[in-house]
């Protein structure tokens, strides 16, 4: 692991003056894949949007490569942090190649003309995301799994040290979910990026992520490795009311009837 790509300092997230959490301290080094876990409404999406610089925190700071995300220009921020949000793009008329090319937005000039470098970055992103075979398809004709890969490729084309994803495995079938998280792992470890994503897929998070960030009501967030999360019982506590038991040795969980 390398130096911290992204840091959150005493970060309080929330809406309209109402905090969703105790202050969060967080460091995301390069070459790391981190999953954000927590029950619905606990603030996973808000945390991601705040880290991405899209939503102002109630207090505290978010730093990317040491610079305050909310103090930098939008264009500069877009060169530091790429985000994949939930939902399909509103228009299915775009072809995949063009959509991924939009990720070059912070790097192109006023007219958005793409240079050889930009086209190379798009090719590279499509390869990494396993979406190269889709490049000429219209987005509207892609399956949910394919769209997710295309959206990730779009974020990769943005060529940022930090990649944030909001529930990238939602609406996907089991093989596609595993595919996407494995791909994120490859991207984090192969490209030196700090990758953070929110998910409800406990098992995928436990098996494939370097670290887990557990969001808990009225408590500080917990950050540690999957093994630590299981052994210390923190994971079990984060989902304590849900009738799920965790086996800290096997690293699995079971649902009680």
């Amino acid at each position: 692991m390398t130096a911290a790509r992204m840091q959150a300092l005493e970060l309080v997230i929330g809406y309209a003056g109402r905090p969703l959490s105790a202050p969060i301290g967080l460091e995301l080094p390069g070459n790391s894949l981190t999953a954000v876990l927590g029950i619905n409404g606990i603030g996973k999406s808000t945390l991601l949007r705040t880290l991405a610089g899209l939503h102002k925190p109630l207090a505290g700071h978010v730093l990317c490569n040491g610079d305050d995300v909310f103090a930098m220009s939008a264009a500069r921020r877009a060169r530091c942090i790429a985000v994949v949000l939930t939902g399909r793009p509103a228009t299915g008329l775009l072809d995949v190649q063009t959509l991924v090319g939009l990720g070059r937005h912070p790097w192109t000039g006023r007219w958005g003309r793409s240079t050889a470098d930009d086209r190379l970055a798009v090719d590279h992103a499509l390869q990494l995301a396993g979406a190269a075979h889709l490049r000429l398809r219209k987005v509207g004709t892609c399956s949910d799994g394919e769209v997710q890969k295309v959206l990730i490729a779009r974020a990769l084309a943005q060529d940022t040290p930090v990649l944030l994803l909001d529930e990238p495995t939602a609406f996907l079938d089991l093989p596609n979910r595993a595919d996407v998280v494995r791909m994120l792992r490859r991207i984090a470890h192969g490209q030196g990026k700090a990758v953070l994503f929110s998910t409800h897929d406990l098992q995928l998070a436990l098996d494939l992520c370097d670290r887990l960030l557990l969001l808990r009501a009225r408590q500080a967030a917990w950050l540690g490795t999957p093994a630590e999360a299981l052994a210390s019982g923190e994971l079990a506590r984060a989902f304590s009311s849900s009738g799920v038991t965790f086996d800290p040795v096997a690293g699995t969980h079971r649902f009680l009837p």
Partner: peptide, 11 residues
Amino acid sequence: LIGDENARSMG
């Protein structure tokens, strides 16, 4: 075209 929030995240 790919949404207001996505556009914001791209600067």
